[in-house]
């Protein structure tokens, strides 16, 4: 994977809106943005109602994902071009998810909705009608998804990358600063995790920094390229952004996203937690 295969520019997107075999998909937690205007021809996927199981705390399974994409009119051999708000967090989460279920050709629009808006590119409100397909998801590729036991075993062994804000890392805040702070679980971070906020990887307009800049950011933070890496945040969507950078843009081999992230880890009984700005000891 590389920038050329995983990422397209807003300009490319606008020129390929009607290209055959290309499906634009807006992914967000709050889909009111889509309803108020979206990239012409794009279908929407709701991060919460479409991608999370309504009962169990998990995401949808292989059959549910197959049914979702069939209903959206997305075929296995389509090129899926994802974008969304929040600097593409939810679109990056969906990218990881499409990869997990084996979709072959997935791309992100560099900068997502923000870049599209700042460039003053066109929107429309038409909801496209796409004929249903018979989508067949593959079995989940667990080489890119980390679970809690594996994360505990990775302390002091693998690269753990905490992509939340410095105040969340240190335990001074429990959630990003645009959300109320009341939460029940413990604050802090997984011992030995490096603090590299997701935002380090993005320019102000939401586009990704250059490969050279990105390599320097993670190198300076102490990421050891010879080790496997697990990225986490609060609930797994900001860390999808960093997973995308490390795996798809920089081409690191073994990178997993821990989607349980801090909401799970910070609620586990008996696991070690570090407070303060330093990674802490294993």
């Amino acid at each position: 994977m590389s920038r050329d295969t995983a990422l397209v520019s807003a300009d490319w997107a606008e020129k390929n809106l009607d290209a055959p075999g290309v499906v634009f998909v807006e992914v967000d937690e709050d889909t009111s943005a889509y309803d108020g205007g979206h990239i012409p021809g794009a279908v929407k996927i709701d991060w919460k109602t479409d991608l999370q199981d309504p009962v169990r705390r998990d995401f949808v399974n292989q059959e549910q994902f197959s049914a979702l994409l069939s209903e959206k009119g997305i075929a296995n051999d389509d090129t899926v071009v994802l974008y969304g708000g929040n600097n593409n967090w939810f679109a990056a989460y969906a990218y990881w998810y499409f990869k997990l279920y084996g979709h072959r050709d997935v791309k992100l629009i560099d900068g997502g909705r923000k870049k599209w808006e700042l460039d003053a590119r066109p929107y429309n409100k038409d909801v496209p009608v796409r004929a249903a397909t018979q989508y067949q998801a593959s079995a989940p590729d667990l080489s890119i998804r980390a679970f809690r036991d594996e994360v505990v075993q990775a302390i002091g062994v693998k690269n753990l990358v905490d992509v939340r804000s410095p105040d969340e890392f240190a335990g001074r805040l429990l959630a990003p600063a645009h959300l109320p702070q009341e939460q029940s679980q413990r604050a802090g971070h997984i011992p030995t995790a490096l603090s590299v906020p997701w935002s380090k990887a993005a320019n102000e307009d939401g586009t990704f920094k250059s490969d050279d800049e990105l390599a320097k950011i993670y190198g300076d933070a102490g990421l050891d390229g010879s080790k496997d890496t697990i990225a986490y945040c609060r609930i797994g969507e900001r860390s999808s952004h960093t997973w995308f950078v490390l795996k798809e843009l920089l081409g690191h081999e073994n990178v997993k996203n821990y989607d349980g992230s801090w909401t799970e880890y910070g609620s586990l009984i008996g696991v070690p937690i570090a407070l303060g700005d330093e990674p802490g000891k294993a």
Binding site: D28, E29, Q52, N86, W89, A175, H178, C233
Partner: peptide
């Protein structure tokens, strides 16, 4: 059911 799902980090 939907409100049982932890909120994401969107504003």
């Amino acid at each position: 059911a939907a409100s049982n799902i932890a909120d994401g980090c969107a504003a």
